[in-house]
Amino acid sequence: MPKPNASWKEANIAGLVLEPGSAAEYETGTWRVQRPVHDADKCTHCMICWVYCPDSSIIVKDGRWKEFDYFHCKGCGICASVCPVKVEAHQVTGKPGKVIQMTDEKK
């Protein structure tokens, strides 16, 4: 990654990126205005959200849903839209809907 807030004299020439895979270090989580939240009790670990997440922000461990990667999650809401499992009262929001629900991002 280029040095954050590098001056024009310090910045890499022509915006060259000299390290491979450095997009991982870019915090796209700051773009989020809605935050997905998960109900661990009701999740069936079907992994449909993992398949659809465009930013690889559903973290899976040992075949089980583990957590959101909020450093990269842009809050697009696709996971909440595709999740097939319904809940009466969500563990986090208390509202009826799906295992993943979108909430307002508190900055």
Partner: peptide
């Protein structure tokens, strides 16, 4: 051996600095 990305996405946080380099 030194993988390099050319012409990457360059937003309001760096584009201006790169233009300054160019005119320099």
């Amino acid at each position: 051996d030194h993988p390099t990305t050319f012409g990457a996405w360059d937003l309001y946080d760096y584009y201006f600095e790169h233009k300054r380099q160019q005119t320099d």
